[in-house]
Design a protein around this nucleic acid. Structure first.
Lengths: 231, 231
DNA sequence: TGTACATCAGTGAACGCGCGTTCACTGATGTAC
DNA sequence: TGTACATCAGTGAACGCGCGTTCACTGATGTAC
């Protein structure tokens, strides 16, 4: 018989690569895939990760598990991502970006000038449409939860909320230039966080009626916005 | 020389005890400590867990790590808790309970009848006092985050928010019996979730001013409550 | 008030397992002449 | 249009490590007579 098992390769110092557990993990992707096959592998890693996140939760998610499910071997995964956090980072970025996309056409001067009732209706509408973005993505909720749960991933959510705030703030300022910026920014930011919280409630508790939640939250937000206009 | 190393004990079937990864983990505590020394150990496990949660995050938290830091051996921990989730469960329960404690004296008929401005002020006050509860507990924020992140622990947060909702709802109904219950419950629940979201913002972003956040959120909530009274 | 014994509290040492990670390698795709 | 060669994409097999968990055991505390 020829070589059935190869001899153990010499290892320099296995500890070098293992972090002490205190530095944050690398989040950037590594090599970008160029060939078609590679792009498919890259995307399959992402979708598998999303899928598994919903099934086993972030705690039991591992690169080995992703590889097994995606039908590839670990070294293939490591070519593109340094660790599972980088995969989650990419998933989070995409999800946030898709949500923000739905907001851009709403955050216009014309919207900000709407009378209270119409304004509230428009808020309710964007609320429901961004809700659908999360619902339509497999494991979308769990990606959102992972962003919250992992310390090194928090900034993705933060940056996204910050970006949305600036988007809305710009439109608002164009409409009401006299309003105090700090005050406006805070109100907008809190409105956004409250709306996201309401989205989470809907996901966590399927008993709740999305339309009713959208209505109440929009009223709350609209009233505060109108108050802000007059200040 | 006498027995330096003992012979390997026979193991029946190591797989029996290892879960397949799909059933939720047991959350109840095991034996309750009776003697003083045991109570101290029990409490040290809890406080060490809280401490480590803040340092390494839930992802790297392990029973072994807790034992090392707490100065006990694993079997001692396993006497009281079946796994790390049970420890987090207990920590979460305590934190939620302490927060709710601050709310009970507020959720009274007299409060509900306050005029809008005074009502808003009182909301701002409870908001800030519950915020301090989280801040004063070592690793308090991380306990909250763990409750969100771990699927099997979600119900602790949910149950707490539900309980708070009922508390406020009862006081509100006593004051305004004519108001539609479902409508009132939804408004209250969303207000609570929004206030918690604002708390998280303050924790995540130390730039934000707690007083300013408290003020804006309270105004938003108060306005909606007053609208509700008149319906 | 003393002692025998039961229960409580915690130890030391080991286990099997899956995880993250890397190695030398093979096969597929693209490209220069 | 064909071919030699470089680069890209992915494999199979192994590693050291820490984790969850359990064993038989020792020492401390409480209690019945």
């Amino acid at each position: 018989m020829t070589l059935a098992t190869r001899p153990r390769p010499a290892r320099k110092n296995a500890d070098d690569s293992r972090s002490s557990g205190l530095e944050p993990p690398e989040l950037a992707t590594k090599k970008a895939p160029t060939q078609l096959r590679a792009v498919e592998t890259f995307e399959r890693i992402l979708s598998t990760c999303s899928e598994l996140l919903a099934e086993v939760g972030i705690e039991r998610l591992s690169t080995n598990l992703i590889c097994r499910r995606a039908g590839i071997t670990p070294p293939a995964l490591y070519q593109y991502f340094p660790n599972k956090y980088a995969i989650l980072h990419e998933l989070g970025r995409r999800m946030m970006w898709r949500q923000n996309e739905h907001l851009t056409p709403w955050a216009q001067v014309a919207t900000m000038r709407l009378p209270e009732t119409e304004f509230a209706d428009s808020v309710a509408q964007v609320f429901l449409s961004t809700l659908h973005v999360t619902e339509d993505t497999a494991g979308g909720v769990w990606v959102m939860r992972a962003l919250r749960a992992v310390p090194s991933l928090q900034h993705v959510r933060m940056a996204s909320h910050e970006a949305v705030t600036n988007l809305v703030l710009a439109a608002f300022q164009d409409s009401y230039p006299a309003v105090d910026v700090a005050q406006a920014r805070l109100t907008i930011r809190l409105a956004i966080d409250a709306l996201y919280a309401a989205q989470e409630l809907l996901v966590d508790d399927p008993q709740q009626d999305p339309e009713a939640v959208a209505r109440v939250m929009s009223e709350m937000v609209a009233a505060q916005f109108v108050k802000l206009r007059a200040s």
